[in-house]
Amino acid sequence: MSLAATYRLGTRLFWRDKAMLFASVITPVGLAVGMPLLMRHMTTGGVAAATSIFHGTLAILLSITAFMNIAVALTNRRDQLVLKRLRASELTDGQILTGQIASTATQTLAMIVVCAVAVRLAAGVPLPANPLAFLGVAAAGSAVLSLLGAAYTAAIPRAELAGVYTMPVFLVCGVSAGAMGPIPLPSWLREVLDLLPTTAVVDAVKTGDLAGPVLILTSWAMAGLVAIKLWFRWEPRRS
């Protein structure tokens, strides 16, 4: 099946690009494991502080391993006319994008699981009380952020700028989820930032309350799909 083929291709390319692995695996995993470890040993809060910051770093994993990775990969392939070549094959546009999004989401989910186990072993952060809900939310978050990363490529003019254009997204998502430690924010801003898909995932994991976060993630997914339908570019801009 062709969807399986594009999924396999996406996964193969993810692990093959050594330079990219540093940015999209080593860095976020390092942060998601390192920050809780620091909190555990450097602060009086101990395990509670480590747990809280680990939940926050999920936003980093989502915004880097899912969002940034797919945005960079797709803009590169768009500008190098690889997407154009893929479209010359029997694949449909939907298969090309869905396979890639599913692949990126899977790698992200795998990273999240690896980090959850690593912080349990290294910093004593307890495993999620409801593992199924945790996996479900992490999977949904990974999928939505991958989808949004694909949609976001429309805003990136050239491949060289993909990193620069995704950086603010990463910063806003990280700060808003408390991944960089507690940063005081005005309450109106807090309310806006709570609507971010990454914050929704972190909130769901922290509180165990799923209804609100699922609604937020669904809305983002719809927005992402519409944006792709309207603006996704398969070829570099020539003007």
Partner: peptide, 27 residues
């Protein structure tokens, strides 16, 4: 079948891997 005037490849794949990947896309 189309041979475009200009299109990119995945530079890190070998020739055989590239053909196999595209065979995967073909019924």
């Amino acid at each position: 079948g189309i041979m475009l005037q200009e299109a990119g490849f995945f530079p890190d794949l070998t020739v055989a891997q590239t053909v196999d990947t595209w065979r995967d896309f073909t019924a």
